[in-house]
């Protein structure tokens, strides 16, 4: 077993642990911190079903962003949607036998072209961050670096079209990790770069602003029902003040 395989295999386990345990812990934290007051913003739904619809629209269409910054919405939405398409395409490396819909031509092709869409979105966001004075002012180094990291992932992934690797061996490596029966990872530079950047992204996820993904679902302005007059909403720590 090559050193590269051992390093990447170990890193995959480590990064997966950080990603899932980290996000699970954040979700646990968010879920257990009380929201003592009703603070939904309009148009606030009256029912839980309405909240589900609202969150669906926010998550799928970025509705609030659409109303506030059209260019950011366009680039941001292109990037995220492309990310989803690319993810679907990549499932063929992690499912055995490959899930039937993953092998559909349309899913594979869309996943491929998504790389261009993703780059367009990301570069748009980066350009905006550099050239709009208000956005430049609020940007910390990490804000640029995360964009550059994801651009790196998209670009190195796309480059593999021209610097191909042994994808059967790659798949065996991935499946081997999943079933704890390791096999060799091809040591092509572009592949190692691509995977390395993905691992880095997984590791920083629970410690960075990427937490906006779970965060949105716990945002009280978006996930609360507008029912303050109908039923009494009170946190445990607030109830203690009453005795």
């Amino acid at each position: 077993m090559s050193l590269v395989t051992i390093i990447y295999g170990s890193l995959f386990y480590f990064a997966t642990l950080i990603l899932f345990a980290g996000i699970a812990y954040r979700i646990y934290e968010y879920a257990t911190i009380p929201a003592p007051l009703k603070i939904p913003t309009p148009p606030a739904p009256k029912t839980k079903r309405g909240v589900a619809v609202r969150l669906f629209r926010e998550v799928v269409f970025f509705e609030s962003l659409f109303h506030s910054a059209k260019w950011t919405w366009l680039f941001g939405w292109l990037f995220h949607f492309a990310l989803l398409l690319a993810f679907f395409r990549h499932l063929r490396y992690a499912t055995d036998p490959v899930w039937f819909w993953v092998s559909w031509e349309i899913v594979q092709a869309a996943g491929h072209y998504a790389a261009y869409m993703m780059l367009l979105g990301l570069i748009g966001l980066l350009v905006r961050r550099i050239f709009v004075d208000r956005v430049r002012h609020i940007s910390a180094p990490s804000d640029y670096l995360i964009l550059i990291l994801i651009i790196g992932i998209a670009l190195s992934g796309l480059m593999m079209k021209w610097y191909p690797t042994d994808i059967f061996a790659l798949k065996q490596f991935i499946i081997g990790l999943i079933y704890f029966s390791w096999s060799e990872l091809p040591s092509d530079f572009m592949l190692l770069l691509h995977l390395g950047l993905v691992l880095l992204l997984m590791i920083i996820f629970p410690y960075s602003k990427l937490l906006h993904a779970p965060g949105l679902f716990f945002s009280p302005t978006r996930n609360q029902t507008d029912t303050a007059r109908d039923s009494r909403h009170i946190a445990d720590w607030a109830r203690k003040l009453e005795s």
């Binding site: 911190i33 609030s64 506030s68 956005v135 609020i138 906006h212 965060g215 009280p220 720590w237």
Partner: peptide, 24 residues
């Protein structure tokens, strides 16, 4: 306060510094 107000904790974590609010 971070333990008492979910809003505070989630909002300090979740900002992506996208700038959509900057002119609002």
């Amino acid at each position: 306060l971070l333990k008492k107000y979910r809003s505070l904790r989630v909002y300090l974590d979740s900002c992506i510094q996208c700038g959509a609010c900057t002119d609002k």
